[in-house]
Design a protein around this nucleic acid. Structure first.
Length: 403
DNA sequence: TCTGGGGTCCTAGGACCC
DNA sequence: TCTGGGGTCCTAGGACCC
């Protein structure tokens, strides 16, 4: 039986959700109707466009460009701060609502879900009608609009939801590939970014139709294993399942900060790493997971990035043990260049702690305190003390510094 | 005050083993 | 006697997504 997949995409998610928040809180103007953006703090060097209103878009404002550039294009631009807590709330509410239509909902990002509607035809005869119902209910109940793509697989559903915005339902069924997908520019195909489209254009492949008919050997020579994906995608082929778990199986947790000023100050960098380690470890413990790999991420004033990673002897969620590893990696890899951004990443996360008793690790220095820290996390959460760092963590920092 | 932050997946190359 | 070749594991970097 042919599958039926919906892809539901919130239109201008951050901006729409902020608009709803403001209207709920007595703000008179709907910021979706004026030239506006959601953007980071320019003073903190986080000043880029995260989302834009349709009016701002019309004036040439694009996502991820610096705010000062956006202002040039659009002098009367109004800028609003992102509110991630609120966005997460709206995202959860969005997903929960969609689950009332099918048990198989996959959250693809904060503002996108796939729904497997196959087998719901006993309940809903006409899928386009259901999609319109969902779209309208979201608008009426929650105050923002969505696009819905309907297709026989995830890839085509995703492509369809992107067609014409906002507040639209589109289909891209098998028999519509030639008429709807093929005329599109290759750069609009999912997973074809800047590099890939440049390479394709060099090969004189400009439309998805041309990609569909491209010589497989030539494609493979340039794109290696990606060639298979490209060919399949151009023909609208995708067998992947809508799966709820897949997205929950996060295999890494990371945090990075762009610093207010470039710095070569080792103490400052280490202190930043300390807070970041605490941040990612707390998230790790919340998820009841243990990390196997620790990485430190750098970006210098030339925008050159580098990173280094190392394995822990045992998976752990103990901030103290992880911070020790972070410092070792930092000291062995920091190139003494002016640092613009620094961060910590935990990877190869496992569910169960693999307690490997090592003869050499049985000293006090390597005693795993993760269970104690979990308790501390809960207390901190209860009393709202978000930034308490345990004294022992601080001690490591001092100790390592003195060495 | 010029270019964010959080992810996933893939690849090339080195170390090591047989 | 002038350097094979398969396999695994690991790391760094890059492409891509929202």
């Amino acid at each position: 039986m042919e599958r039926i997949i919906f892809h539901v995409d919130v239109n201008n998610a951050f901006l729409s959700w902020t608009a709803v928040y403001l209207l709920n809180n007595g703000y008179q103007e709907d910021i979706r109707q004026i030239p506006s953006i959601i953007g980071g703090d320019e003073k903190e060097r986080k000043g880029i466009v995260l989302a834009k209103s349709p009016v701002a878009k019309k004036m040439g404002v694009v996502t991820a460009e610096p705010i000062f550039q956006a202002k040039k294009k659009c002098p009367n631009l109004k800028i609003f701060k992102p509110n991630m807590e609120w966005y997460k709330e709206k995202s959860t509410e969005f997903k929960k609502y969609l689950q009332t239509y099918s048990p198989i909902v996959e959250q693809f990002s904060i503002d996108e879900c796939f729904i497997d509607m196959t087998g719901t035809h006993y309940l809903y005869k006409d899928y386009i009608e259901v999609a319109n119902k969902i779209k309208n209910e979201i608008k009426n109940n929650f105050g923002y609009t969505v696009n819905i793509g309907i297709a026989n697989n995830k890839l085509c559903a995703k492509m369809a939801s992107d067609f014409e915005k906002p507040n639209k339902v589109h289909t891209l069924f098998k028999d519509e590939i030639v008429s709807k997908l093929w005329p599109m520019d290759v750069k609009d195909l999912f997973m074809v970014g800047k590099k890939t489209s440049q390479e394709l254009h060099k090969m004189n492949i400009n439309t998805i139709e041309e990609l569909a008919h491209a010589n497989p050997k030539k494609l493979s020579a340039v794109f290696k294993s990606q060639a298979n994906y490209l060919k399949d995608a151009a023909w609208g082929i995708d067998d992947s399942e809508v799966s709820e778990e897949k997205r929950h199986k996060s295999n890494s947790i990371s945090t990075t900060d762009t610093l207010p000023h470039d710095t070569e100050d080792i103490e400052k960098l280490k202190e930043r790493l300390l807070f970041q380690t605490e941040r990612v470890c707390r998230e790790l413990r919340e998820k009841n997971k243990y990390a196997t790999t620790v990485a430190v991420i750098f970006k210098n004033n030339n925008f050159t990035s580098y990173s280094a990673q190392a394995k822990l002897s045992n998976p752990t969620s103990d901030s103290k043990l992880i911070y020790k590893k972070v410092l070792t990696i930092f000291e062995n890899n920091y190139k003494k260049d002016p640092i613009r951004l620094i961060g910590v990443r935990l990877a190869d996360l496992v569910e169960i702690k693999n307690e490997q008793i090592s003869l050499f690790d049985s000293n006090e220095d390597n005693y795993d305190e993760s269970s104690i820290q979990k308790t501390i996390d809960q207390i901190n959460k209860k009393f709202g003390n978000d930034l308490i760092i345990s004294a022992s963590l601080k001690a490591i920092e001092r100790h390592e510094t003195l060495k």
